[in-house]
Nucleic acid binder design. Sequence first.
RNA 1: GGGCGGUUAGCUCAGUUGGUUAGAGCGUUGCGUUGACAUCGCAAAGGUCGUAGGUUCGAGUCCUAUACCGCCCACCA
Length: 754
Amino acid sequence: DWERERFTLDQGLSRAVRTAFVGLYEKGLIYRGTYLINWSPGLRTAVSDLEVEYSQEQGSLYYFKYPISGSDEHIPVATTRPETILGDTAVAVHPDDDRYRHLIGQACVVPMLGRAIPVIADTYVDRQFGTGALKITPGHDPADYEIGLRHGLPVISVLNPDASMNENAGPYAGQDRFECRKRLWVDMQAAGLTIKVEPYTLQVPRSQRGGEVIEPMVSTQWFVRMKPLAEPALEAVRSGQIRIVPDRFTKVYYNWLENIRDWCVSRQLWWGHRIPAWYCADCNQMTVAREDPEACSHCGSTRITQDPDVLDTWFSSGLWPFSTLGWPETTIDLKTYYPTSMMETGYDILFFWVARMIMMGLEFTGQPPFRTVYLHGLMRDEHGRKMSKTLGNFIDPLKVMDEFGTDALRFTLLTGSTPGNDITVSLQRVEANRNFANKLWNASRLVLNAIGRAPKRPGSLPEPTLGDRWILARLGGLEREVARLFEAYQFAEAGRQIYEFFWSEFADWYLEIAKLQLEEGPAHAWSTVSTMVHVLDDCLRMLHPFMPFVTEELWQHLRQACREQGGGLGPADGWEQALIVARWPEVEAAAPGAAEDERDFGVIRSLVTAVRNARAENDVPPRKRIPAVVVAGERRRLIESERKTIAALARIDPEGLVVHASLANPPAESVPLVVGEVEVYLPLEGLVDTVAEKGRLSSELANVQAQITRLETLLGGAFADRAPAEVVEKERAKLAELKQAEERIRSQLEGLGA
RNA sequence: GGGCGGUUAGCUCAGUUGGUUAGAGCGUUGCGUUGACAUCGCAAAGGUCGUAGGUUCGAGUCCUAUACCGCCCACCA
């Protein structure tokens, strides 16, 4: 026998738990009583309904005879747990069942024990199932327990706390229940009482904790009356005071609370919050008190002992939103931080924790503990199984963080799934995000270097370049989008978009352009650095919730570098001490020319890409500068003003870059390209594979023509008059552009001698 | 028995007010390495969105049915 040893829990929390317990007790919402509960034989404790999981297992259905006293007749009965026969106190049949109606009210005999029990009638019995007769074991089956109550049947328990048979099992006392099952059946066979055994799939109740088979047992425990607590909790969500994200869990929440049953909160464990009830050895009365009593509150006797049971761990967890803030005292923390805005947790503890926090919060503070419940999915292993300590199939986050970094893991978990959907952990994904953290680091390093070499702020600032205007327009768009996504609780999508912007636009394009601009003299250099700082600063602020460590580190460097530069780069003096307390970037409406800048830059970008593409296809050495003839039409001014950028990014010889508005005779021996309204010719004497180019252009032409046909059909049909004008207009513009492209490709094909 | 989720590129997943040849990462293929980054760069190939209907000018996105996988709730012995 163990001395029960208890940990001294934090005094404050203990006090909150006691206050809550006694409060509920005094309102009649906690009671102690003897009922059928779920018993965990290995742990030798009661557990709540929620802690029982049902697993489908192969078992047997045992058919046997219940002999009628003083007659040759018997009632056939089936059971999956023969050992419970020893605790039967009735056999039930349906009142309208012609097979057995004449036996109702008679007595039958419990096999091997010889106890006489009645045959009763109850409409619960399903005439179609099994033999149509049901043995009633109120001591070990929930349904039978209910029937027993209806009929005033005695309750016989045949199990000890360790699930061995007790003295009520007669000759089987002391045997384990599974051993007894076999032996009893053998004995019944010998006595001619068995009929048959069929294989049968049954739902076996198992302990969530250890996996052992749970036995329904009659026991004296403490219960919380749930209906009065559930009502306000339902109302809080129905009325919109609390919102559950994603929405579909609202229904699950309703369903559970609407059908809630009383909660068995006492546990026969060695640690936990001990139940504040004392029993008097003299008057047998119970004293429930917030403070340890000196004496029985009924008779004054000092011979009192505290209930050895402790509370279900979720009882104190339910108080967490306010017990952690000092409740029941009216602390400043409580007044300041309660209720909070959002509760973020996994959907698997919606009932265990979230619902109970809501119920307890409303009960004890009169307010819902939070406004929004955001439920994330569960981590699953590569086989799709839930990660659990019991299975041992979890990925150790510490190891992952060691290898790839905490930020990489955090970013992966944040962006890897949709709210409420499970996530299969992919280490490759963590690795990819580690690379992103590295990209952040390196891009920032480039910016920091530029700051270090930046000149003083010039007297007059140059006009921002297209590149500058473009990245700022894109940044603004991103910030609006991220704000919208945050409002909608779409954190994952927000994170992905920032990632995309930072890597594919800021690092891949703007920083490349910035390198060129830094060489354009002090004024341009300063303004470029200023733009880099602005974009990087905003990105770090937005990424901070996703990757707190690397962004904080970089931001501190950024802030420091701007201060040291001393030329008024960034609002250095207005910056906060740390990123974690820094303001979120302000969301602004798009600047007047933003859309045009984005479109213009789009032309430059696709032109550069097209040239790179052609170079790769024609095996032009990467470092080789080549000439290019651009026929730009109305885009001539744009191309002219961006020629340096184009030349550098596409590795075109700046001297050899010729821009025309139009050209009667395209250069011979060159690779022709069509980029929207712009044509490009790359004179690659000796390198051009005319046949291959023809093939490429032909397939491009076919593609464009297919699109034209599609759009013409579309615009010729009902779409034109039934779709919104602006949607139609967009398609019209696209068609016009395609037609221009078609002509260009045609003439290029002719130029190749087709 | 009731309810819910998933089914989109070889793999893991995005795609939330339906807007018109579907996106990412990884993997694959080709080229590339002195100046932020090979934990990288530049390019490329690759899906018609489980299936069958329907609504609509228009559907991966809405509706109905259905298949498969998974989950939750439920006292049929």
